[in-house]
């Protein structure tokens, strides 16, 4: 045993180190979709909460820009109370849209004003209508969009701020990495170049231009500002429970830490008589 052991040990250790090395390298080099640049968000971290002013400005951006094409099916007007709007304001916001109501006592359908209990009005009656109006592309519902993408909030911000006039030279390479001569370059019709979008060609018209909205609180409506605000709004739409979740989580973890410390003390005490 004493003679064979060191050799075996060295062999297995070397093998183990090799495998570990591969595992580590594999963990660090996997090149998936480009990771969006991390932004500083009010709602990140253990103590994060949504910046109310940014949420309200973001709602304005959604309402005046995004909602022309994108639905927000899971959110109701009444949910806007979380942004700091009062009941009358919410009623007024809901009343700006027309919903189909009915049937009434005569069995007729009718058009009525939106109510706080209504979900956000869908800009298109169905998917086909949405595609017909958008060059064949279907603008996705935005209710959980920040949860549906890796690093969702950072991704959304990167997408909204990375439209470029035309793709860079490095974009024009074929599958083998060879450059494509200018004569053979074909840009898909009706598409736009976005550096943050997988594949680069996106059907969405660049949605944000400077001063696209007039902020009521006087904030300058730069593209970056609007992108940040609307992302904050949509992050709330995706995770309306976030503030309550984190606040409860802090208490739960503190309680568990205290309880576990007690359990440890008790364990030490009970086991003491064995040793």
């Amino acid at each position: 045993m004493t003679t064979i052991n060191p050799a075996c040990r060295a062999l297995t250790l070397a093998l183990g180190a090799l495998v570990l090395g591969i595992a580590f390298a594999a963990a660090t080099s996997a090149s998936e979709a480009p990771k969006p640049k991390a932004q500083d968000w009010s709602f990140q971290g253990l103590f994060g909460t949504f910046d109310r002013a940014a949420q309200q400005r973001g709602f304005q951006v959604y309402k005046e820009v995004c909602s022309g094409c994108h639905s927000l099916n899971q959110v109701a007007y009444r949910n806007l109370a979380a942004l700091g709007y009062n009941e009358d304001q919410i009623k007024a916001i809901a009343a700006t849209v027309e919903m189909q109501g009915g049937p009434n006592d005569e069995g007729e359908m009718f058009i009525r004003k939106g109510k706080p209990f209504d979900k956000f009005k869908n800009p298109f009656p169905n998917e086909n209508a949405a595609r017909a109006a958008n060059n064949g592309a279907y603008p996705p519902d935005l209710s959980v969009i920040t949860k549906a993408k890796p690093h969702g909030s950072d991704y959304l911000y990167a997408l909204l701020t990375n439209y470029k006039e035309k793709p860079p030279e490095s974009y024009w390479v074929d599958n083998d990495g060879k450059p494509i001569p200018p004569a053979k370059r074909k840009w898909p019709e009706g598409m736009f170049y976005n550096a943050a979008f997988t594949g680069g060609a996106i059907a969405m018209v660049p949605p944000l231009a400077a001063e696209a909205v007039a902020y009521q609180d006087g904030t300058k409506a730069t593209v970056a500002q609007m992108a940040k605000d609307v992302t904050t709004f949509l992050a709330w739409a995706a995770e309306p429970e976030l503030e309550e979740r984190k606040s409860m989580g802090r208490k739960v973890i503190l309680f568990l830490l205290a309880l576990t410390a007690l359990m440890y003390a008790l364990k030490r005490k009970i086991w003491a008589d064995l040793h």
Partner: peptide
């Protein structure tokens, strides 16, 4: 029982950390 309960506490801190954060 007490050793399992202590372990449960440690585990729940990890589990609830993921659930809440």
């Amino acid at each position: 029982t007490i050793k399992d309960l202590f372990g449960l506490g440690v585990f729940l801190i990890f589990f609830m950390g993921i659930v809440f954060f």
